[in-house]
Computed example of a mutant assay.
Amino acid sequence: MSLPKEEREYTYVDYLSWPKDERIEIINGTPYLQAAPSRIHQEILSEIHRQIANYLIDKNCKVYPAPFAVILDLEEEEEEDIKNVVEPDITIVCDEEKLDDRGCKGSPDMVVEIISPSTARKDKIEKFNLYEKTGVQEYWIVEPEEKILSVFTLQANQRYGRPGLYSEDDNVPVSIFEDLQINLNIVFSQ
């Protein structure tokens, strides 16, 4: 499906009307069609998700792999006013009040994006700014080709601080949990 060509801002109402088998996000009213992810992307996503999901057994938080809708317009109550709907590669939500059958309404606790050449700009600039502005506590950007992970955590001033940078030989602490570390050697082993 091609993206809508009409010059206007799109909303959550539009998102709900689009085909369910298409991955489309809306950032600041602009729709983005997402290409099918590569095999390596999916292997990385699966391994990070597996490590987090295993840790969360018998805990209150939930982890969701894409596609999973996250609505990030907290101040907007009407669906026709919501202009930010994203589908992160991995989403962690610890407040069950934010969950409904459609996904997450409000800021998740943590988001992971696995970039590709076609999504790098959107993930590193547009989504970075959106996640920071809406209070996502921890944002991971995974770069598969370089085998690098950048971890951004929200500071007291509600801004992301300098990123923690990790490579394939590292175990990465997940700051929203006391005792979870992700083994990047396994994540990048494909």
Rank of each mutant, 00 (worst) to 15 (best):
E6Y: 06
E77I: 02
F128P: 02
A66F: 12
E76W: 00
K62L: 07
E9T: 08
Y166W: 10
R23V: 14
K20R: 12
E126R: 10
V142F: 12
E47N: 12
E22V: 06
P88L: 08
E22D: 15
R23H: 13
Y160M: 02
Q190P: 04
H49W: 14
V86T: 11
S46K: 09
Q42D: 13
L3E: 15
T134Y: 00
T153K: 13
Y131S: 05
T30S: 10
D170T: 10
R159C: 00
V13C: 04
E6Q: 15
D81Y: 01
A69C: 10
F68M: 10
P19A: 05
S150F: 11
S116G: 05
G29Y: 01
Q137S: 15
Q137F: 11
R50V: 00
I52H: 07
I44A: 13
E146F: 13
I90V: 06
V112N: 08
K20Y: 07
Q190R: 08
I186A: 07
R159H: 03
I82Q: 14
G164N: 10
P19R: 03
Y32S: 09
A36F: 13
V93R: 02
T153N: 15
L180V: 09
E87L: 15
Q51F: 08
T134F: 00
V187I: 09
I176K: 05
D21V: 01
G161R: 01
A66I: 00
D21M: 03
A66V: 01
L45G: 12
A69D: 14
E132V: 00
D89Q: 11
I148Q: 13
L99K: 06
E80F: 04
R23W: 15
Y10M: 08
V63E: 14
I24C: 14
I176Q: 09
E178W: 04
D58Q: 13
D21H: 09
Q181M: 09
Q181V: 07
P88V: 01
S2F: 03
I52D: 07
S46Q: 10
T134C: 03
I125T: 04
G106R: 01
I186R: 13
S2D: 13
T30W: 02
E43P: 04
L149A: 11
V136L: 05
L180H: 11
F188R: 07
